[in-house]
Design a binder for these strands. Sequence first.
DNA 1: ATTGGTGCAAATCCTTTGCAATAGC
DNA 2: GCTATTGCAAAGGATTTGCACCAAT
Lengths: 149, 149
Amino acid sequence: MSADTAQIEGLDLVELLRARGQRVTSQRLVILRELRRRRLHATAEEILEAVRHDLPGTSIPTVYATLELFVELGLARKIDAGIGAALYDGRTDPHQHMVCRECGRIFDLDGEYGLGSLVEAAERSGFVADGAELVIRGRCADCARARVS
Amino acid sequence: MSADTAQIEGLDLVELLRARGQRVTSQRLVILRELRRRRLHATAEEILEAVRHDLPGTSIPTVYATLELFVELGLARKIDAGIGAALYDGRTDPHQHMVCRECGRIFDLDGEYGLGSLVEAAERSGFVADGAELVIRGRCADCARARVS
DNA sequence: ATTGGTGCAAATCCTTTGCAATAGC
DNA sequence: GCTATTGCAAAGGATTTGCACCAAT
């Protein structure tokens, strides 16, 4: 992997890895770039597919390991949307998710709103929270419209 | 299955099934009773284990089908806690869940708190919500204590 | 008598593991 | 050179499917 690729594409990642004494590999750089390029959340399989062009021969265990590493590093979120596979999300700012029961698409819901008070209630019970993930289910605007007409 | 079992154990279930033209089977009655007896949420496998005494020969596909039916009927909630298996919860009143990253136990968090405003925000975007499930992750009181000392 | 439910076995899907080869440090 | 990472193949675990039999209506 060339030095300039690292400098252009994955500055924070390189720093984080160095700080932990972990290695900077092309798989890690390319997978992070792909994750960030997407607007929508992706499954490990989708990332593998997308990355195949730049990194032929990449394997699915590597994709899983890399995505889990990113979650640990705070570079990604793992979303359990209740569709078969886990989704990985390059957005790390506070936002939640809406899953359409009909078309299966997943939408972002920006902002924190009242989530804080639930987490506070959790902490009042002695639980030390370090993450909260809300999944709202229902029908997306498109599917709701189609159903009425 | 005897008539009185149905009357004692599963009144609402019987009515719901009749209304939909579905059959009242001993599996459905026993699995619902078991789900309601538990305080903690159970996996399909745990329900199967617990039900084996009253219903020898019950199969895991039946347990899954029955639990999914209950979710559809509003008699149970399915919780995707991010531990391998799905959990089924006989409590249907509003409450959320806390998952301990260390011991893996799952705790109830009662009340609605601010969840409503997030769901309202979802609806403002055109999404028609019919369910919301929050999973808070972190360390439970016991594990947090053990770690400090 | 009909046909919806069930049990069984096997398939499928997602994710993880073991191990030899490779590449980053 | 040392050892973390990788790729491969295979295992593992959860859930679903296909189909013949049974039991509720």
